[in-house]
Design a protein around this nucleic acid. Sequence first.
DNA 1: CAAGAGATCATCT
DNA 2: GATGATCTCTTGA
Length: 198
Amino acid sequence: MKKLTYKFFNRKTALVARELLGKVLIYKNKDQIISGIIVETEAYVGPKDLASHASRGKTPRNEVMFGEAGHWYIYLIYGFYNCLNIVTEEKNYPAAVLIRAVEPLEGISLMEINRKTKKLENLTSGPGKLCQAFGIDKNLNHISALNKKSPLFIGDIGTKIPKSKIIKTTRIGVDYAGKWKDKKLRFYIKNNAFISKK
DNA sequence: CAAGAGATCATCT
DNA sequence: GATGATCTCTTGA
């Protein structure tokens, strides 16, 4: 299996978001492996995107988004849940892809423990849920997925999602973003059981 | 099943 | 002092 490279992430964010569908999110340390196929993403595309944290300038929280492509951006939302993003595009251009849902592949029994449920479709079908299932928290914020030592990275198992199976639509939970809320920057795999919302 | 409330805190104003 | 790139539980039909 190939690991995704800097070149993959240093491109237009919407393109990266779309091509991440079918790739595999992997968390691996010396005694456990958890992985899942990415089935839903959203693009946050630059300083003018009012839905993006970066639209109001650089702050201590979002400065990772201004850094190099391939770094993880993880933040706490609503006081409860972590959201997992990967930085895209050139340095100093703030953009990232939010990974919203995956389809469980390996380590399902660990996910069940982390999520305190046995219902398969409820393990990783949302940004907060998948972080909980994988045990992802802010310890991983700011590190690079491209680094050999990173326990969290993305692999390519050669799956190609045909264009006819990719749904492109508006993002979730960004009603405050003015005209940007209507931009079609959310991508997911048609008829997949692990999508966060239809 | 759908709709609504409540949980809870880091971050920014 | 307000609020959010969410989720779960309760209510009621």
